[in-house]
Amino acid sequence: MVQNIIDVRNLSKSFDISSKEPGLKGTIKHFFKRQTKSLKVIKDISFEIKEGEIVGFLGANGAGKTTILKMLCGLIYPSEGSILVSGYLPFRRKENFLKNITLIMGQKQQLIWDLPPIESFYLNASIYDLDKFEAKKRIKKLSEMLEIDEELFIPVRKLSLGQRMKSELLAALMHEPNILFLDEPTLGLDINAQRNLRKFLQKYNNETNATICLTSHYMKDITSLCKRVICVHEGAISYDGKLDLLLKKLSPVKEILIVCRSEEDAIKLENSGFTVKNKIKNEITLKIENNSITSSLKTILNNFDIEDLFINEPPIDEVIGKVLIKKDYDI
């Protein structure tokens, strides 16, 4: 039986925001009497994550993804509710807990700028109580997985962003954490580097059965890695479940572009009871529900003179984009 490695119950987080009137008068007033407003950014959320799962957190900017991630790794105190990560209360930041997790933030770097990455690795090794022999072994293994080699001996400031990210990953994974928190790991990387990173994460998950929680703006990251997604909307969870289920739910129709041989046929097709999206001369686009697609196509092919036919899957980005603005999915 697979255990829950992360268990979140009724978690809320509010920040105190002090508001200030502009000008000198406002400043003085602010000095003596601070008007603070409590802003609830996370509202009563609960979820569990099992060991070895890869979970993607989706949401618009400011929806609260990063706050959730930071609470999970213990950087932010929760206001209410409980969090248990591999049996620890994260915000106590106990040594054994910290040795169990890692946080990777895209474009934020912890490597020492003027030195080759290898020096930062050995520094991390001493912080995480690894002896030299063990550290060497792990660096070798991870650098093979990440396909980096001579980059380890070049000062960080001279590396490309992609190479730097790989080195960051190596530094963050040297202590072999069970749980990886990734906040926008692919930010700023080019398409190839993004793909390599995803490939690596998948492989790392397969080999070590580590749990991975990630947020990303690149849908490709989510769709290629995560079977399960948690959508966050204004601090609340709007969907938690399988990714393909969400996609099906969100795009129940397919678009089919039909090119008729003659314009008359097109007009006939237009008036035959299907939902028409648009029509340009002899090209007509229909919207057909997923579950009736085969029967509808049969009817069309039998009754009309068709020159060509395209089935358009709605682009996944667009579909998930809807997640960001939608509040509820009743599933």
């Binding site: 790794c73 054994n96 934020k108 912080i127 109580d129």
Partner: peptide, 13 residues
Amino acid sequence: REGTLDFVLLKPI
């Protein structure tokens, strides 16, 4: 300024 204090806080030291 760069928000990397988080990395420090997550180190077991």
